[in-house]
Every structure is written in structure tokens, then in C-alpha cells.
Design a protein around this nucleic acid. Sequence first.
DNA 1: AAATCAATCTTGACACTGTAAAGTTGATGA
DNA 2: TCATCAACTTTACAGTGTCAAGATTGATTT
Lengths: 230, 230
Amino acid sequence: MITPVDQSAPLPAQSRPYHHGDLRKALLAAAVEELAEKGIEGLTLRGCARRAGVSHAAPAHHFGDVTGLLTEVAIAAQAKLAATMREAIARAERGSAEHVIASALGYVRFALEHPGEFGLMFRRERLRPDDPGLLAAGAESFGLAADAVGAFLGRREPMSEPQSARQIAALWSLAHGFAGLMLAGQFGPVATAAASLEALLPDMVRALFGLAPANRPEDLATISMIARRR
Amino acid sequence: MITPVDQSAPLPAQSRPYHHGDLRKALLAAAVEELAEKGIEGLTLRGCARRAGVSHAAPAHHFGDVTGLLTEVAIAAQAKLAATMREAIARAERGSAEHVIASALGYVRFALEHPGEFGLMFRRERLRPDDPGLLAAGAESFGLAADAVGAFLGRREPMSEPQSARQIAALWSLAHGFAGLMLAGQFGPVATAAASLEALLPDMVRALFGLAPANRPEDLATISMIARRR
DNA sequence: AAATCAATCTTGACACTGTAAAGTTGATGA
DNA sequence: TCATCAACTTTACAGTGTCAAGATTGATTT
């Protein structure tokens, strides 16, 4: 499964300065691009170096090894995920069902828009899972979802903590699993599945929180289609 | 990220016959073992060949390339998943809530018992996702869950109703996401998380289907612990 | 201003990988 | 008996991550 690669140095060796300037940032950007174009499996350290226009061993001086680079990419991805969720919940009233739904929608939207980065965030063996920065970055998006659930449950009636914890874990699992299954092609081609995101997920979340579905009639066809995929 | 490997042939070249006997089966078994011991990232074609006691190029004659081998491993894994779910469902009455819950429990149990194989099943880029055998094998476990949901919702033909389709997708997403997050270490160490599987998942499923939780008091501590992980 | 230093980047090497091509082996059918 | 052919090995090649050692350069010290 090794495909030929442009082995030539990206720039004539003479035309670029010996010192890059901000190689660290350039390598991170290169990694994100490689991730988007070729996926995790296709990303290589040497490929990132080529894209940044430096020798194959240059990245080591900034990130140690490949897991070091990917860890920092994952940290940035976590920040982007939190930003996407924040944007999604911006217009929702805190404590409302829409607030909870929006947080889940933001989560899945990020996954579909940045499948490579999203996948990387949960590949323990490809990064340093105990990195403090990574843990802190991950706590952000988790906090957004937890706050949404807590506010919603607290508004209706004071819920016991375990019940709220369970609903947080359930919401996260639901969104995470939905995203993962879509990206794995289990709901059909990603393109068609993405179209049904906004139709399906909100009612899933509503069901999880004991609320009545709010489907528009035109969404129903899409839903049936997904179920009939086998 | 390359760790040293026992490069010596597993058997003195003279002591084994030129023809293996059933190399195909031996290689599949070797792949499953490598998967269990080293995970997907650690599995290599040459490693499987070494473990089976043949030359590194032998697998090509039976599986073409590495994706061919992994596709067949994934097919077998799908069958195991269906078997685990069937076993979990066996004692539950069809149409009951326990029936639905058991199917989800079986799904997640398989994931935790065989993380490597479970992960492989959803790695499109590492196998041939359109392989007819793989699709057929995947339809088995999906059918079990779909039937459980359909029977519970009181409809003979589960696919006919969008509502049922949505609940099937939601159940699958919930179980899949829960398994994935546990395996990714997002609920703390896998060992402790696994202990809370039976405590958490049933009530998650109950919530999804609008049923009251049925937690035993001793489960509550575990649940809080998970929510407090950050 | 000159010398030194440390960070940055390159070159070269090594062990490993997947895959292709060509050569061996041994069982099977004419 | 002997030709055939699938099963397996050997050899080779391009690509990979990582290490060690050398080259370059901007910054710091004298």
C-alpha cells in the first residue's frame, strides 16, 4: 500500500535560507493539510517535511518524533472542535433543549468537516494521550457539553449528580458514535449521510432526554433511506 | 516508532515442509493474535508471516495484499460480534426492553474484549469496505439490533417507520460511541471503565427509549467517577 | 569587532515496512 | 513418466521513522 511520492526537494536547495523562520508552525500546518488530503494513514513525517520544504530530519528538532507532532495537531484540533461547538450553541438559550442539541450538532459537524483531525484526536497510539496540553484542550469541549446537559436538567428539576453524569456520557456517546459511523461509511456515502445530519441527530437527542420528536415531514424520507442501507 | 523485532525465522528452515498445509487459516489466526497483542498500528504483514512460520511474501499468494488479509479478519470479527450479541440476547424476551439493552451490551462487550478487531472493522482505509462478504457479515449484527428495536417498538417490519429507523441509528450510535470512547481512554483507564459498562449502558438505552432508569445504588458512585474525570 | 555558542537544519545511515518479480519445490493429472 | 501448476522462497526496491554526526547561521559574549 505504498504509493509513489514526489521525492524531489520542494525547492532548489540554493533558493531557500538555511533557517526556515517558523518551521514549527509550518510543520503543523503541513500536517493538517496532509491529514485533510490523505487521512491519518497517509500522513508521514517525511511528507510533512517535504511540504514544509525542509529535510526529512528537521521535524525531530521541533517535535521529537511523529507522536509529538501529532499530539500538537490534536491539541489544535480540540481547540477547533470547541470553537465549532461554541459557534453552534451561540444562539441557543442556556438550559434549553436546543442548547443541548446544538452542542451535539457542533460536535458532529466538526467531525464531518475535519475527519482526519477528528479521527486523530481519539487515536491513543498515534499521540501522547497523557500530554497535559492535550488533556486540557479536551476538557474544553467536554465542559461545553456537560454544561449544556447540566443546565438543561437543572432547569426542569434538581437532578441527582449520577443521573446528570449518565446523560452527559450518553450524549457524548451518541454524538461520537454517530460521527464515527458516518465517517466509517456505515450510513452510506458520507456526502448523503451528512445531508441527513441535521434531520436525524436533533430527534435522537430529544429521545435521549425524553422529549417529543420535531421532525419536518421532508426529513422522513432521508431517515428511512439510512435504515434501508442494508 | 519502529521497535526492534525478532527477525529470525520462527523455525529452522529445514525442519518445516515447503508447503504449509493450511497457511490461509494460519495467517488469519496470526493476524488476530497480532491484533490482540500489538493493536492495528502494530500489526504488519511480515509479522503475521513470521508468526505463521513462512516467508514474508507468502501471504500475498493467499490474500493479495495487506488489505485483503485485514478484510477477511474483519469479516470473521463481524461474525464474532454477531455471535456475542446473539449470546447476550439469548435469555431476553423478544420485544422487551431487556432485549434491546442486551443487544447493546453485547455490542460493547465485544468491543472491549476484542478492541483490535473491533477497531479494524471501522477502518475503511485498511480494508476493502465494499467487499460483498464484509457487507454481508456486517448486516448480521445490524439486523440483530434492528430487530430488537423493531420488536420493542411493536412493529413487525422495523424498516418501515422513520421513527423506528431513527431509534435504530440512535441505539447503534450510542453503543458505538460508548465503546469507542471507552477504548480511546476517554472514560478513564479501560479496566475501570469496563467495570461500569453494565452499570451505565442499560440506563442510557432506557433513557433513549423513554423508560425510567433502573440503577442499583452501588452503581451510582461509578457513574459520578466517570463524570468527574476531567 | 571578533570569537564563541547554541539552536537550527542537512546528510547519511540503519532497521523496518509492503509489494513485485523471478526462482524452487512438490503434488497432481495426462 | 513427465509436464504442469499452485504454493512457497528469494531477491530487490522504494518508502518509512529515527538516530548520529556534520553544516550553517543568528545571537551572545568578550
